[in-house]
Design a protein around this nucleic acid. Sequence first.
DNA 1: GTCATCATGTAAGCCGTTACATGATTGC
DNA 2: GCAATCATGTAACGGCTTACATGATGAC
Lengths: 237, 237
Amino acid sequence: MLELAILGLLEDQELHGYEIRKRLRDELGLFSNISFGSLYPALSRLERGGAVQAIGEVGDDAAGPVPMTGSLSGERAALRARRASPARGRRGRKVYRITDDGRRQFTALLGSESGAGSEDARGFGLRLAFARYLPPQARLRLLERRRAQLAQRLTETRAATGAGCRLDPYARSLVEHTTESTERDISWIDRLIEAERVRAVSDTTGPSEDGGRISSEWQTDVHREMKGMTQMEGEAR
Amino acid sequence: MLELAILGLLEDQELHGYEIRKRLRDELGLFSNISFGSLYPALSRLERGGAVQAIGEVGDDAAGPVPMTGSLSGERAALRARRASPARGRRGRKVYRITDDGRRQFTALLGSESGAGSEDARGFGLRLAFARYLPPQARLRLLERRRAQLAQRLTETRAATGAGCRLDPYARSLVEHTTESTERDISWIDRLIEAERVRAVSDTTGPSEDGGRISSEWQTDVHREMKGMTQMEGEAR
DNA sequence: GTCATCATGTAAGCCGTTACATGATTGC
DNA sequence: GCAATCATGTAACGGCTTACATGATGAC
């Protein structure tokens, strides 16, 4: 799960751990405040697994001359380091880059329809956040699977609530609010699905077809279709 | 957390493990499908800790319609069961009853404002579900603490979203929907808080005061004030 | 010169999961 | 007799948390 999130962020650009945490929190709202005790080991695992590689700026081992990373923060750090003391690199700040193998792992994780965290809210939110890397049909499957889950939960809840219904006001309010939230989530997903169908049509009739990946132009039709969102609750402290 | 849920259910009535799971799922919607691998060890811990005690099956009153028909096999089963463990009922069900010590533990857990799971959605939902066992001021604190958390997350998200905002449509939709859900949650909590204030007033002006526990009569003023609910997402598979 | 922030990591532990193993009861 | 459901448990593991330890950089 966390690996998936990290790889997703690294698909876009090279980042160091601290920055990854920030992105996760601020940008996606997922893993609201993932702890370092969980983040760094995950990065180590990914590195050992060959999915990412650390580049530049390490204190201990001789990582050679600081390479031009192309990332803003990387170059700023390099500049600062050079200004302060040309011989010695800035402490730590291990910048990671995703490898080709990592990209393959990412696609596999993202598309996997079973396994750890593939059917909870967080797992869905995460996958949706990176849905642009998913081929259109997989994207649709993701949405429809989620929709089915939510719908099922809703009917189950209704069945249980309709009969007995001897809940006190607090529990009742809780259940009602949960139900309403789920309903809203479903109609949100429905809008996303609809937008997806529209996109599929305009793709077949439209100009080009790229091999599964969405290219650059958002801002237009798809964008306007989509509003709203699920109970994600990254939370944590 | 799970202990809290179990104790809360046992406050109401004696139950066996399998039934506890069912209640958690169907009635509260919390811990949507808590696994037995987690439930039974929890019950063991509680028993070891003196919070609950296993009692022989209480046949008639405890939700067990199942009439005895097959006398021969039934008695054989009873003999086998009794030989294996005295605390076990005829059908191998271990029915648990909460102890006085368990009630104390429950109140402590329910009221604790820090510690494991006291500030996530699930922890809040759980506590709210048992809010009737909480003294009025503690109930209010619970709601206000939750409100503050949600409000803070909201401002943080807005800060992060307002500036950069170079998200693709999928991530954007996710963030927007999350934000809306949080807003709805906040106004739900606000309604609960308002209802709580009303109750407090009608309590001081009203007839009796009981020592913290709400007595029997819901259905009236408080009930009508409350509608809606948070992103709980018990989920699981 | 000290404090806040940035930055990386380790160790212990909690809380839950899946997978496995077992047995009783009911309905056909 | 056999399958489905009810019912209880154990073992291994997963994923994330807290608490701890370390060190650099910049601001005042």
